[in-house]
Write a protein that binds this DNA or RNA. Structure first.
Length: 1001
RNA sequence: GCUGAAGUGGUGGAAUUGGUAGACACGUUGGACUUAAAAUCCAAUGAACAUUAGUUCGUGCGGGUUCAAGUCCCGCCUUCAGUACCA
């Protein structure tokens, strides 16, 4: 019987689906285990071989845990709101819901064919109203909450109102906007409703605020940094400027310290935790208030080095700082305005990345130093970012390199306040060796003492105080997009009102166009039925808006991370329409035990979801304030792109010019093979020779009109070609390429030159070799490999094992199909261990000592590997086991049956099939994992490596119970040792029993 | 720029606490079987030198610690990822 993988795999996939083998129950006698993959976005291109990597790993773990006797929750769903579907809608007019549904269908088919043990009964989709009902619900909870620093948790906004009514806000210690005004209880009670709402917005955990965005006037929309290439929009190449816009924000900064400290309590990868720590960016220092000359305004700065306050020689504001326009003197106005306009064109990332270009402008205004009362010129510079700290810095050029460079560039004095330090070349940023000088009361103090003293003095004169600052900014929560969750918000007198939770979900309205409106409003501005009737409690037509009972609804939608910030809890009880999840469900499943996903989410999804979880914890909704106990990162499978090298048409000269020739050369693009390309690049001499060769080759094609071939190697252009036309020897299938539906036309009359500088013809055996490069797998690079064909050719089990075999899970690695044959022939070999030509070979024979040794060695290694997520090494272990058992001619059921359970998490289909052939009528999925018995591995001797000066020369078989002295004696007496020593006496002999012998001398 | 990760044969990678570098595969070469191919099996395969025995070099680069370094320490280089509206 042959290993007919297509048949076997289809059979068991059907069986699992019909028997609901992997359905998890919300109560069970077994211990629970929750394995989760990061939410996939169902892209239009479908699954490529890189996507399943993490899913295969988590599936192996989930299946392993089932063998260990756990009740395993392993759900899957779709983060189905997002830009690509919207982009497609803009281009084609097709509703994103349709695109998304189609994409999901493809995804599901592809996931099913790989044999994952997902509990599909729990599937969720973020774009489904029954799901986003709860996303809207959480938004309302956040709106109705504020963060109390005294209790260090989120509390209900109604409690805050009670405090305001009784005692005003003087004693309230909340995380709130920086500019709240103080008021008394009497003030509060006298305020009108709008004023009260304005004040409350300054405290709510989600609030409206002005935020800087990348505005593209031509597209009438806001762009992600991602959508901007070289300062212009990726789509259309239009200019982009920085602009302020009123948007919803989330007060994640309230949780900065808890998010930081929580990292110590969870088992996530160190690099990921480090990324989050840096992102949160705690710094301890002081705020300093500078008075501005001739103004009643003050400039607040935050500094981590208050000890260097006497080194301040200027101040720098972000060009966007709100005071800039007010303090700029008339003489400087033109220069400042021009500068502001110029920086508005640069993205934040550009400004941070580019430290070499120093730009700035003087405002003409001066601040007063709080201690020396000297005048300090106020500059603006784009190295200061508006969103960081207060958007202003006190510049200490002697102690900060950027300030130093700025001062040098603009000839601003650089006073030295460090004892015995030379600052003629660069700033001195070291804290450890700092001794302050030229600084009045700080003279002679070190960094720590001077900092303390400076803060003390600042507080004494009311010009500053000690402060801890976080880099973490509040998260912008609005998007000017269509395909996202609508806000459950309408506006009365410009003030946002929450729709009562019982009327949720507020469904996304239909629009004709997915573009912004002509007046620059978000796409929801195109909806004609998008108003809230407070009497009927329903969405009604816009024309009914009277601002008495019918009000306009919010036009923004929520960002991509909204739907993915609580989905892991929703999986516990996904169909509950009364609550986000039941108490029973969350108390049973508690939290995710293992979360597998990419590290690219480190500072996005993985931080925001921790924030929401902490908020939900404060609200008493979840039992843990961290939702994932353990998290591991999977790397990415990269594509191996293929390149052909096109010679520039400029390389050719003709004896007649004009249209005809240009057309001719365009119709016959010339491509040269890789090694030839490399050669031409390396040696200019070879170009000359090749010019002649090429000329004689081409003369026929161009009817003798070609008079000059002059190739400039820097004009040879590498072009991506589809990897499906490349074989394992990097040879190009020219015929296939010419017939390609998409690009065939471009290559129809192309001329291909081989590495031997010869024209490639159908019958002359010359080959075109492509260039290869490892890049991210992407449609635009034509290096995408689809798993469908691999499942068809080799089967899902081969795909699963091969993806694991490729290398460590967390590493980035290129995809290369050639190795899959090795894994596939392993599965065939394993099949032959169980099944011969005339049926099952397995019998009740007593296992031999060697059989048992192989089995238990394998059990030990595989169990260790799974627990360490080292799946690649287990695949090797299986290969070794099957090689050994085949050589031993093992047929013993006592060995071969447990081996199936070992391999079942990796290759579940073949394991199920052989398991049933062994006579089982129940799925292998819950068969107990074999127990390791060390007694089968006991060895009596060791093949010692004998080294001389650390270099291994030969090995010696010695009993393991031999003493150190005996080993030394035996080794030294050995003739090969004498040979190596050649009469010398060893200076020293190192014997590590069970490991190594090293002879020095 | 900042932050994080990685770098080992022709290729993917292995190497438990510092202890035989290159397991397991792919590829390549040679062989068996076959009319032939596929499939399968066997052997060789880091580089250089050497008739053999063997020797020397070798884990991105330069140093260091150690009886012993892919592994530890210091200084660099290169590549990739994230960088706040891609998901």
């Amino acid at each position: 019987m042959k290993y007919n993988f297509n048949e076997i795999e289809a059979k068991w996939q059907k069986y699992w689906a019909e028997s609901q083998t992997f359905k998890a129950e919300n109560n069970s006698d077994k211990p629970k285990y929750y394995v989760l993959d990061m939410f996939p976005y169902p892209s239009g291109a479908g699954l490529h071989v890189g996507h399943p990597l993490g899913y295969i790993a988590s599936d192996i773990y989930a299946r392993y845990k089932r063998h260990q006797g756990f009740n395993v929750l392993h759900p899957q769903g779709y983060d189905s709101f997002g830009l690509p579907a919207e982009q497609y809608a803009i281009q084609t007019g097709q509703h994103p819901a349709i695109t998304t549904a189609e994409n999901i269908k493809t995804y599901r088919r592809q996931l099913d064919q790989i044999g994952f043990s997902f509990d599909w009964s729990r599937e969720v989709r973020t774009s489904d109203p029954s799901y986003y009902k709860w996303t809207q619900w959480i938004f309302i909870q956040l709106f109705n909450s504020w963060y109390n620093n005294d209790s260090n948790r989120a509390e209900d906004i109604s409690d805050l109102i009670k405090i305001f009514e009784v005692e005003g806000n003087a004693k309230v210690n909340a995380v709130c906007d920086a500019d709240v005004e103080f008021f008394t209880a009497a003030d509060w009670n006298n305020y009108d409703s709008v004023k009260q709402q304005e004040i409350l917005l300054q405290y709510r955990l989600t609030y409206l605020a002005e935020t800087e965005v990348n505005w593209c006037p031509a597209l009438g929309t806001v762009l992600a940094n991602d959508e901007i290439v070289n300062g212009v929009s990726e789509r259309g190449g239009h200019p982009v400027i920085r602009k302020k816009m009123t948007q919803w924000s989330m007060r994640i900064s309230a949780y900065a310290e808890r998010l930081r400290q929580g990292l110590d309590t969870i088992d996530w990868t160190d690099s990921l935790k480090e990324s989050q720590r840096n992102w949160i960016g705690k710094s301890v220092g002081a705020t300093v208030t500078f008075n501005v000359i001739d103004h009643d305004k003050v400039i607040d700065v935050f500094t981590t080095r208050p000890d260097t306050i006497f080194g301040v020689s200027f101040m720098t504001l972000a060009p966007e700082h709100e005071l800039v326009s007010q303090i700029t003197t008339p003489e400087q106005k033109d220069e400042v305005e021009a500068y502001i306009e110029a920086t508005a064109k640069r993205s934040e990332r550009d400004r941070m990345a580019d430290v070499k270009t120093i730009t700035g402008a003087f405002t003409g205004a001066y601040a007063i130093h709080p201690f020396t009362e000297k005048l300090i010129p106020i500059w603006i510079g784009d190295y200061v970012l508006a969103g960081y700290g207060t958007g202003a810095v006190m510049s200490v050029p002697c102690g900060d390199q950027r300030d130093y460079d700025f001062a040098k560039h603009f000839n601003i004095p650089i006073p030295n306040i460090f004892e015995g330090v030379d600052i003629s070349e660069e700033a001195f940023a070291d804290k450890e060796k700092t001794i302050i000088a030229n600084s009045d009361f700080l003279n002679g103090l070190n960094y720590k003492k001077a900092t303390k003293r400076a803060i003390f003095e600042l507080e004494k004169i009311g010009q500053g105080q000690g402060k801890t600052n976080y880099r973490l900014r509040d998260a912008v929560f609005s998007r000017q997009r269509y395909w996202g969750e609508p806000f459950p918000v309408y506006y009365v007198d410009g003030m946002p009102q929450m729709i009562d939770a019982k009327h949720l979900p507020i469904e996304l309205p239909e629009v004709e166009k997915y573009l912004p409106t002509e007046t620059g409003e978000p796409p929801l501005g195109n909806a004609t039925k998008w108003a809230w009737d407070t009497v009927k409690n329903d969405v009604v037509e816009n024309e009914k808006i009277d601002n008495k009972t019918v009000f306009p609804l919010e036009l923004n939608t929520m960002p991509g991370w909204a739907g993915s910030s609580q989905y892991f809890n929703r999986y516990m009880d996904p169909h509950n329409d009364q609550e986000i999840f039941s108490k029973e469900a969350i108390n049973y499943w508690q939290q995710v035990d293992l979360y597998i996903g990419g590290s690219e989410h480190a500072t996005g999804h993985l931080l925001y979801s921790r924030f929401w979880q902490k908020f939900m914890f404060d609200k008493g909704l979840v039992p843990h304030d961290e939702y994932a106990k353990k998290l591991i990162n999977q790397g990415m499978i990269l594509g191996t792109s293929a390149f052909v090298y096109r010679v520039s048409p400029n390389s050719f000269g003709f004896d007649s010019k004009g249209e005809e020739i240009i057309e001719l050369i365009k119709r016959h693009p010339i491509f040269i093979s890789r090694i030839l390309f490399d050669e031409l690049n390396k040696s200019p001499e070879s170009v000359k020779g090749f010019n002649e060769d090429l000329k004689s080759i081409l003369n026929g094609v161009f009817h003798g009109k070609l008079v000059r071939v002059d190739i400039k190697t820097n004009e040879i252009q590498p072009l991506h070609v589809k990897v499906k036309y490349i074989n394992t020897s990097d040879e190009l299938d020219i015929d296939g390429l010419k017939k390609d539906a998409e690009f065939g036309e471009d290559f129809e009359n192309a001329i291909f030159i081989s590495d031997n500088s010869r024209l490639i013809l159908k019958n002359n055996n010359e080959k075109y070799i492509v260039g290869r490069d490892v890049e991210k797998m992407s449609k635009s690079k034509y290096n995408v490999v689809n798993p469908d064909q691999i499942c068809l050719d080799y089967g899902a089990d081969s795909l699963r094992m091969y993806e694991m075999f490729l290398g460590p899970l967390e590493q980035y690695k290129p995809w290369n199909t050639s190795g899959i044959t090795g894994v596939h022939s392993f599965l065939k070999k394993m099949w032959r261990l169980y099944v011969g030509e005339n049926g099952l070979l397995v019998n009740d024979a007593e296992p031999s000592k060697d059989n048992l040794k192989t089995l238990h060695k394998t059990i030990k290694k595989v169990q260790e590997d799974i627990e360490n997520f080292s799946f690649n090494t287990s695949v090797s272990t299986f290969m070794i086991a099957v090689n050994e058992l085949t050589a031993q001619k093992c047929t013993s059921k006592a060995v071969l049956e447990p081996l199936l359970v070992l391999i079942s998490p990796y290759a579940p289909h073949i394991a199920e099939e052989l398991w049933s052939q062994l006579g089982h009528n129940k799925s292998i999925s819950t068969a107990p994992f074999p127990k390791f018995d060390a007694s089968h591995l006991v060895e009596s001797s060791k093949n010692y490596p004998i080294s001389f000066n650390g270099k291994m020369r030969f090995t010696m078989e010695l009993p393991l119970d031999m003493s150190k002295d005996e080993i030394e004696k035996t080794v030294l007496e050995h003739e090969k040792t004498q040979e190596q020593l050649a009469g010398r006496t060893p200076k020293k002999v190192i014997v590590v029993p069970g490991k190594i012998v090293n002879i020095v001398g």
